[in-house]
Write a protein that binds this DNA or RNA. Structure first.
Lengths: 106, 106
DNA sequence: ACTTACCGTAAGTCATGGCTTACGGATTCG
DNA sequence: CGAATCCGTAAGCCATGACTTACGGTAAGT
């Protein structure tokens, strides 16, 4: 049930901007905050949420802290979407078949 | 940018319960509300959000309204996750290669 | 050792949204 | 036509969370 935290983390637009900024490669908090429309502490708080959700990895480098996207951070969410919409599609096609078989009135 | 609404819709636990209940097939609002821990108007409001996000389809049947999962409702979100994490993975492997090539200290 | 740079956390403010009760419109049946 | 059922919407309450400023702690440089 960890995909719940993942979705909650991705639900915030500013956090998605953080991920966009990190798409190209790792950045430290200061550089990240300069590209974003919020203050540095706000960025820190968002990085906390994203890290807790397993979407980011951290690496301390001197006085800097480098954040990077965790490549397998969205796996659970993907699985959730797959299972959910697989079942939904199955029910959908089944309903269509039943309708066609039961009373095929044009 | 429509995946933003999709994520926002999926971010609420009650709305995910709605989707779980609709996985097996279409239901009307009353039946849906009985299975959920909130009132019927609350369910209506959630159905509104999910419909606006393109995750549900509606079909009026007499005085009932049947809601069902839209099989292609999560496509945009999937594409977003794919592109995001493809780029992230590319940056990740590239960084690993650069590090290995630049200074391959064991 | 002192100063500087970088960062996380605490405290407080304010907007967002999820829930409830109350109400009104639409459809079906006697 | 009148009664009953089903449902969406309005209004209001309250918790959550995103943001800011202020502060403290750690690492590097002189």
């Amino acid at each position: 049930m960890t995909y719940g935290m993942t979705i909650a983390a991705l639900a915030d637009p500013t956090r998605r901007l953080v991920l966009e900024a990190l798409k190209a490669g790792p950045l430290h908090v200061g550089a990240l905050a300069q590209t974003l429309p919020v203050s540095r502490p706000a960025v820190s708080q968002h990085l906390r949420v994203l890290s807790d959700a397993g979407l980011l990895t951290v690496r301390t480098e001197g006085t800097r802290r480098l954040y990077a996207i965790d490549p397998k951070g969205a796996d659970d969410l993907r699985k959730y979407l797959d299972s959910m919409w697989d079942d939904a599609l199955a029910a959908y096609t089944k309903a269509a078949q039943d309708k066609a078989a039961g009373k095929d009135r044009t």
